[in-house]
Design a binder for these strands. Structure first.
Lengths: 228, 228
DNA sequence: TAGATTGTTAATCGATTAACAATC
DNA sequence: TAGATTGTTAATCGATTAACAATC
C-alpha cells in the first residue's frame, strides 16, 4: 500500500520560512520565561521580535494553539511545546569530523549541551591529533570512523574538514546510521534520502552581509544625488 | 526634495531569497571556472545546484543578462559580474570582538582573505589575552575600541562575545563608523539605521537540523504504520 | 458588560515556475 | 536551416497580512 503515498505531498510539513523562525521563537520565549513573564500576547511578542502579530498567531496556531482568547499565550507551555516540536528534549549524540579551527571551536562550545546535544567523539586525518581531547571528547583517527559508528549509534555528524574531503565522508556516515549532517565545509553536500544535510556556509553569510552593505551604500548615494 | 523619496520602495532591492542564492552562484561558477568550463547553460547549472533552470535565468537576468541565446552563459563573465554585485573585489576591513573559541577560530580561518576580507584587529575584555596574536592580528583591550575605530576605518565588526555583552557593543561600533556587524552571539541585536546586522545563530541552525530530522522520522513512522 | 486578544478565513503580496518568442 | 537556449511575460503557487467572529 505504501506505493500510493505521494512523497511530495508531505502532509503537515512545515515550510522553510517557518522552520527558520522556530528556534527564534524558542529562544525568545525562554528569555521571557526567565524574565518572569507568565503570559504574552502576539502583539507584544511581535514588537519584540520584529514580526507581525498576525504571523505569530498563524505560526503558533500551526503548533496546536496554546493561546487563550482575550488573554494571550502561556509562555512556559508554549516554550515547552515548541521545544517538543524542535525535538530539543531528546538527547542527540554528536561527533565532529575535522579538528581544525572550526572543529575545535565547536567542540569546546558549551551551548550545545544546554539543548541536549551531546558531543561523543572527534575524528581527524592528522595522526598527531589522535588521542588529544577537546571539549571533553577524544580525537580518533578518521579511518576508525566506520567501526566507531557500528558500535556507537550517532545522530548527527558535524563536518569541519576542508571542502575537498567532505563529500567522501557522506557515504560512510549514511552507512553507519547517522541521520543528520551539519556541514561547515564550503561545498553543498550530496546525500542519500536516509540522511539530512544542513549546509552552514559561513563565508556565504559574510558575503551576504557585504552585499547588503554595498546595496545600501549605493542606494544612499543615489538618494543624495537626487536631493542635491 | 529628499523627503518625497519613499524609504520602503527601495527600487531594485534584491529579495532575501535571491540574496541567499547569490554566494552559492558565485561559489559554483568559480568551481566551474576552475574545472575549465567556458560556458554553461541554465539547464546544466540548475541540475548541479538543485534549482530550476527558469529560476536561474530569472536571477541572472536581474544581474543584467550575461547569457547568449542558443549558447548559454559565459562562466567567467558571469562570475565576475556576481562578484562585483557582491562587492567581493573591494577590500573589507574586519575586526573581531570576543576572542573565545569562536573568535579564535574565525581569526585563524584562512578563507576570508581569499574574498578580500582583511582581519585588522582583535578585541577582548580579558586582559590576559591582550597583546597575543591570532591569525596575524593582535588582541587589544575592549576599552580601547572607540579610540581604535577613530584612527582605523573599519567596515565590519564580528561579534563573538557572550550574548549578555553583545548589545552594548552596537552603539560604540555605530559611533565609530562601522557599517556592518556579523553577529555570532545568541541574541538578535538591535541596531541603528547606519549599521547592518547579520545574525548567524549557529545553535538555531543545529536546532533546525534536529527538527527536520524529527519531522522526517515521524513521517516515516506514519508511512510504515499505513502500509502495515 | 466592555475591552482584549485569539483562532481562522479571506485578501494580498511576492516568489517560483511555465511558456514561448527571440535569436544565437 | 534546425536545434538549443536565453530573455521575459504570464500563470501558479505559497507565504504574509488583514479582518473579524469567537471568547476569555
Amino acid at each position: 500500500m505504501s506505493e500510493i503515498i505521494d512523497r511530495n505531498n508531505n502532509p503537515g510539513r512545515v515550510s522553510d520560512a517557518m522552520t527558520r523562525r522556530m528556534p527564534a521563537y524558542y529562544r525568545r520565549l525562554l528569555e521571557l520565561e526567565n524574565l518572569g513573564f507568565l503570559v504574552i500576547s502576539s502583539k507584544e511578542l511581535a514588537r519584540r521580535m520584529g514580526l507581525t502579530d498576525s504571523q505569530i498567531r498563524h505560526d503558533f496556531n500551526a503548533f496546536g494553539g496554546f493561546g487563550r482568547r482575550g488573554r494571550g499565550y502561556n509562555v512556559e507551555l508554549l516554550r515547552k511545546a515548541i521545544g517538543d516540536i524542535l525535538d530539543i528534549n531528546r538527547e542527540h549524540n554528536l561527533i565532529i569530523i575535522g579538528i581544525g579551527n572550526m572543529g575545535k571551536a565547536l567542540a569546546q562550545y558549551k551551548g550545545f549541551s544546554e539543548h541536549s546535544f551531546k558531543l561523543m567523539a572527534l575524528f581527524d586525518a592528522n595522526s598527531e591529533l589522535v588521542g588529544k581531547r577537546f571539549g571533553g571528547a577524544r580525537v580518533y583517527a578518521i579511518n576508525g570512523l566506520a567501526k566507531y559508528l557500528q558500535k556507537n549509534p550517532t545522530d548527527i555528524a558535524v563536518i569541519c574538514t576542508p571542502a575537498a574531503g567532505a563529500q567522501e565522508l557522506v557515504e560512510p556516515l549514511a552507512a553507519g546510521g547517522v541521520k543528520g549532517i551539519w556541514n561547515f565545509a564550503a561545498v553543498d553536500l550530496q546525500a542519500p534520502d536516509s540522511i539530512l544535510v544542513n549546509n552552514v556556509h559561513l563565508t556565504d553569510s559574510l558575503m551576504m552581509l557585504a552585499f547588503r552593505m554595498h546595496e545600501k551604500q549605493v542606494l544612499e548615494e543615489d538618494k543624495s544625488w537626487i536631493s542635491e
